[in-house]
Structure formats: structure tokens, C-alpha cells
Design a protein around this nucleic acid. Sequence first.
DNA 1: CAATTCAATTGATAATTGTCAAAAAATTAT
DNA 2: ATAATTTTTTGACAATTATCAATTGAATTG
Lengths: 186, 186
Amino acid sequence: MFSAFLDILSDLSPLSDKSRNALLKHLSSKRIPKDSFILKHGEVCKHIYFIHKGFARTFYYKNGKEITEWFADEKGFSFSITSYFQEQPSKLVIECLEDSEVIYLPKKEMYELSYNHIDIAQLIIKMFSYSLMISQERMDSIQFETAKQRYDKLLKNQPEILQKVPLQYIASYLGITSETLSRIRN
Amino acid sequence: MFSAFLDILSDLSPLSDKSRNALLKHLSSKRIPKDSFILKHGEVCKHIYFIHKGFARTFYYKNGKEITEWFADEKGFSFSITSYFQEQPSKLVIECLEDSEVIYLPKKEMYELSYNHIDIAQLIIKMFSYSLMISQERMDSIQFETAKQRYDKLLKNQPEILQKVPLQYIASYLGITSETLSRIRN
DNA sequence: CAATTCAATTGATAATTGTCAAAAAATTAT
DNA sequence: ATAATTTTTTGACAATTATCAATTGAATTG
């Protein structure tokens, strides 16, 4: 299981056996039942969380309403960017929407390893580059596409999500209300 | 001049003299006159550009209109995220709004150095982490704040920019039309 | 399986922002 | 300084989306 996970990381940026073994020592995993949390509100996000099995969503509260920020499917990942980098209590909550198996990649240990495993440093660079591109694309999408365009894009690129998730989660993920989403869908 | 620049980088993540000297060999700088481009449309973004002196804005075309994505003041930086990482022609244009002095930090050489200078790898990690946080914050801002809130925030945090830049640039940066900005300002 | 709770839809209305056109103000060039 | 150009403002109107309330539908639970 960790080995499959290390394969995924190696796909991003190749890892030597030495680095794989070094990382392996610091990986842990946890079964998280449906409706329980990977990261709770107010906790500091000290890991990047990989969904080995199951499904998670990341959200926060805005005027008492839950705003979904991210869905992580199998082989997907999630972390609270601000909490992770600034080591502050997280406003984001990461919740499992199905019984899940989550792999914890700890920040502290990963950073420590990056000082004497150059391929781990490269992996980190790749992970953050990748996140940065995604973040940028989402920003453009929110700023310049209409609600309908964003919905159609989601429908095209991640139709599985629409099967699994209440529409209200989709709505806030797209930056609109449930009512508007309902109307878009006709 | 490069030394002042290396100091700025060192502030982000400390650099040994060895690494400073290694980087120094690959730095270049260029005077860019007002209204000329640091990065042209269609060019691949092969550097991160630091404004040593002057002022630049990054924008792209959307339905024939210029949409400002970023302002870089003195000690600020800019690059086209998508073009830089995917090595594709840039949709973004980086333009100097004043006579400027720009320092070019080349991707290829920086990445090469990162393989045997661990502190340079750490610097890259810091730069991208920082960019990721900024990107995230802007996304939240665009998604959840009204145009007025975004304007007031800009007014508070970067009042200099309002002095220097035509309001239409500000408007597109805030994700609104000039007319709306004009009304917000009363 | 009926009752309760939660989710999705629909309708009416309001708020925000965009679009287009024109006028006023500011900037730049001759 | 005056003309030409560009930028900003203003007005009228349209489009998009939000809000609130009510209803329908679905799913969970006792």
C-alpha cells in the first residue's frame, strides 16, 4: 500500500530506493470512517494527506455556510495551504465522504529528508509547482467563466464527482448557490 | 546590484556564499524602457523576473480586452506560471509601466544548481510555497469578496499602485469593469 | 413503513455587476 | 497652447446570480 503510494510520488518526480525507504519510515496511514475528519477546524495542518481509498472534500465556513474548496478522489491529495505553510490553525476542514484510507506525509520529516535527499527536494518542488498551476487555473476559471461554463467543465472533466456528492457541495465548489446550480441544470 | 538581489533571495531562504556565487554566474539584468515587454505574448517563460527598479504589470487578453493579473513593484517578481512550468508559449504578457531594471533568474540553470546546492533547492521550495499562498489568497478574495471589499483592501495594502496605474488596469486586476470601479469610487 | 430530517427545486424579488453609448476630464502630441 | 487621443465618469438598461420562502422529493431512522 505504501509502495503503491511511493510509486505515485515517483511518477511526479523520480525517487531513488534510498529515498523511498527513507520516506517509508515516516509514512503512516489511517482508516477514516465516512463523515469523520482528516483535518479538523483549528488544527494545524502538519501533513499532506493522500486518499489511498475513499473520497474526501475540503471545505470551510463562510457566514455559517460550508464552502467546498476541493474534492480528493482516490490517488488525490489535500492539505490546507495556509495552515501548512504558516503553521497556523486551519480554517479548512478535510472530511471523508466515504470510508477512506488516508496516507499521511508529514511536513517536518519530509522537509528534513529534503536536506540530504536531493530527489525528495525535487519532489517537493514538483508537488508545489503542480499545486500552483492548479490554483492558478481555478482562479482564472472563477474569475472569467460563468457559473454554467464552470459546471459544464466539471461535468466533462470529473463526472464521477457529480455521482458521489450532494449538489450543494458542487454548488459551493463552483462558487454559486444551490438554487443557481439547480437552475443551471434545468 | 545582483548582490542586493541575492540578499532578497537569502531573506526568503538562507544561501551559502557558494550558492550565491553559483547563482551569480547565471544572473543577468536588462534595462527595459517604459511600455516595453519583459515577456512577450507567445514566448516561453524561461525565467523568473525580478524588478530591481521600476514597475511592471502582467496581463493577458480576454475577448480583446487586457486583463491585469499582477503588479510587480520594486523588489517584486513576476513570471507566467503556466508557461514556466509547462514550457509552453505564454498567454501572459509582462510589460514595464516605467523605465525598469529587471533581473533574470533562469529556470534551467536554477534547477540544475538545485541538484547540487541544497540551499538553492530550499529556496525554490520557498518561492513556490510563497506563490502558492498568494495565489490561494487571491482566489479566496475573488470568490468571496465583493468588488468594493477588494478595492478597499487594495487601497489599504498597496496604495502606491493606485497612484501609478490607470484605473482600468486596477479594474481588471480586481476582476471588474472600469465603469464598476468608477462607481465604487463614487 | 411512517415519520422525520435533509436535499433539491421552483417562484418572486433584489442586488450586483456588465454592456453600450455618450459626455467630461485628463493626458499626450503637434 | 491647441488639437488629438486616451481615460474616466455618468446614465440607461440588461444579464447574472443571490436571497428568501415555499414546495417537492429523497433518504434516514425509529
